[in-house]
Simulated scan of single mutants.
Amino acid sequence: MDAYLIAIAIIGALYVLLALGLNLQYGLTGIVNFGHVGFFCVGAYTTAILCEHGVPMVVTFPLAALLAMLAAWPLGLVSIRLREDYFAIVSLGFSEVVRLVATSERWLTNGVQGIAGIPKMFGMLTGTPQALAVLGLLVVLNLIAIAAMWRIVRSPFGRMIEAIRDNEEAVKALGKDPAGFKIQVLVLGAGLAGIAGAVYAHYIGFIAPEQFVPLMTFQIWMAIIMGGVGRISGALVGAVILMFFLEGSRFLRDLLPFISEVSMASVRLGVVGLALILFTMYRPQGLMGDFTRK
C-alpha cells in the first residue's frame, strides 16, 4: 500500500509541474495551449535517447528542458499571427506531430515499440527508498518552479503578461509588443513540461508514443480549471483533485460490480468529466479562485 501511495504522489507531483507550466501560459497570459503534452514528450524522448548513448542524467535533464523550449519557440512565432481559437488547434496539431514523429522515426525512437531500459534515477537505491528519492526530487523541482512563478507574478514582466491576458489591444495601444512576451511565456512553460517529461521517463523506465496522447493535456486543463485558473495554489490543488478523481474512480468497481472491466474505463472518464462540469457550473473560478465571485 505504501508503494502505491508513493507512486500516486509521484504522478501527482508530475501533474503539478505540468499544471504550473500551463497555468503560466493560459492562467497568466491567456495563451490557449492544447499541445502541452508535446513538450512533455520532447523532454521524455530527449533524455531517453541521450541516455541510450551513454550521456549522464545530469546532462540529459537540462538538455530535455532546452529542447522542449526550442520546440516551443516556432510555436510561439505562430501564436503571434493567430487568434486564440486558431492557435489552440495549431498547438493540438503540434503535439500530434511530435507523437507521430516518435511513432514513425524508428531509427531514433524505436517507433511504436518504444524505448525500454531507461536508467532509473538514484540507481544506488532500490524499492521504496528509490521512489521516495524521486518524490523528493519532484518536490524540490516544484518548489523551485513555484518560487520562480511567484517572482514572475510580482515582477513588471508578470504585470505585463497579465495585461496581455486581460486586454491585448490595450497593451498594443500603449506601445508595447505582446508577441515577445507570449513567446517567452510559451518557452518557459515548455521548459517545465520538458523537465517533467525527463523525470517521467526515468521513473517509468519505458516510454512509447501511446503515452503522450492529447488526453494528458486535457487532464492538465481539468486540473487548472478545477483548482483555479491564474492561481499558483490552483495548480497545486487542482492536481490533487484530479488525482483524487482519477485514482479514486478505480474503486468504483467495488460499488458497481455489474460493470465490466472494459466499460469501467469509460465510467471513470465520465466521473472526471462530471466533476469538471459541476466545477464549471458552481465554481467556475476554481476551488482556489476569487471567493468573492459566484
Rank of each mutant, 00 (worst) to 15 (best):
S263Q: 15
M121R: 09
A64F: 05
P284H: 05
A208V: 06
R81S: 06
A239G: 15
L137K: 07
I224K: 02
M1I: 09
I259H: 08
P129F: 01
E210N: 10
G123V: 08
G248P: 09
M1S: 15
G248E: 10
A173F: 06
N142T: 03
S260K: 10
G54L: 12
L256K: 05
L125Y: 12
L143S: 11
I195L: 15
S79C: 13
F181I: 08
A102P: 06
P156V: 08
C41M: 13
G238D: 04
T103P: 03
L17C: 01
I11G: 00
I195Y: 02
S91N: 03
V187I: 14
A44P: 08
A193D: 02
L252D: 04
H36F: 13
G38N: 05
A193Q: 00
A235Y: 01
A235V: 05
L75P: 01
I31C: 02
G205H: 11
S155C: 10
A102G: 10
A163T: 11
T280W: 06
K120R: 14
G38P: 04
L132S: 06
G228M: 04
L278M: 09
E105T: 08
N167D: 14
L274V: 14
A64K: 00
V16K: 00
I11Q: 04
I232L: 15
F181Y: 15
L274G: 12
R154C: 03
I183L: 15
F87A: 05
S79Y: 04
N142I: 02
Q113V: 04
L82Q: 14
Y200N: 02
F40S: 01
G180I: 00
V262S: 15
R154Q: 07
I144N: 11
A72H: 07
V112I: 14
W73A: 15
M288F: 07
D85H: 12
L174Y: 15
M222G: 11
V272N: 01
L246C: 07
S95W: 01
P62I: 09
L75S: 01
L192N: 00
A72M: 06
R253Y: 04
L188F: 08
A163F: 07
A198G: 12
I8V: 15
I49Q: 14
R99I: 02
T103A: 11
G230Q: 08
R81D: 04
A65H: 01
Y203A: 02
L63F: 04
L141G: 00
L188A: 12
N33F: 02
Y86T: 08
M124K: 11
D254Y: 14
M222A: 15
F122P: 09
V101S: 08
L20T: 01
A275H: 05
F87T: 06
L75F: 03
N110K: 12
V139I: 13
A48T: 11
G234H: 09
W221D: 02
F206S: 06
K182N: 05
R165A: 05
M149E: 09
G197Y: 00
L137F: 10
L92F: 07
